[in-house]
Design a protein around this nucleic acid. Structure first.
Length: 148
DNA sequence: GCCAACGTTGGC
DNA sequence: GCCAACGTTGGC
């Protein structure tokens, strides 16, 4: 299967980019999701998939790139078997964060889930959207792909 | 801090 | 199984 791209949304006061980076190579489970759509997207993820790390509230910007390091498994923060999550690790900070208003201002990104359904906390991102946002963030995609 | 949008819950 | 009520999210 071709690599898929995603977007993970969090509030900086709850789980910041620095928190994610601090978890290092082994990463951390993306727990706490209690929404079926978001859970289903996590079930679709494969190890090696890449995602944007998006901060809501004050930042409202894509700030970094993460990689899925474990497929969906039970969410350790609940006994409720309905909820699952993947593990992710930080792999690169965007040289320039890409704010929501820039994304909204770009007609090529008008179909992004972030624009159309801002409340969904885990979202799919198309390959084209991935390239455009990485480019806006000053990130060289080739360097990501050359990584180990 | 407000409020619209959305998802979930629970009574019927 | 419908739908009103409610809670939460997140942009503004």
């Amino acid at each position: 299967m071709a690599k898929q791209y995603w977007l993970f949304k969090t509030e900086p006061s709850t789980w910041s980019w620095e928190d994610q980076v601090a978890k290092g190579e082994t990463g951390e489970e993306w727990d706490g999701v209690r929404n079926y759509q978001a859970r289903n997207f996590m079930r679709d993820m494969a190890v090696g998939d890449l995602g944007f790390f998006y901060l809501s509230q004050r930042d409202k910007a894509v700030v970094g790139i993460i990689e899925v390091v474990a497929e969906a498994h039970p969410d350790s923060t609940t006994e409720d078997h309905r909820w699952e999550c993947v593990d992710i690790r930080a792999i690169a900070k965007l040289p320039k964060p890409v704010p929501l208003d820039r994304i909204k201002a770009d007609p090529r990104l008008s179909e992004m889930v972030l624009v159309k359904n801002s409340r969904l906390s885990v979202q799919p991102v198309t390959e084209e959207e991935w390239r455009i946002v990485c480019d806006m963030g000053g990130l060289d995609i080739e360097s990501l792909q050359r990584r180990g």
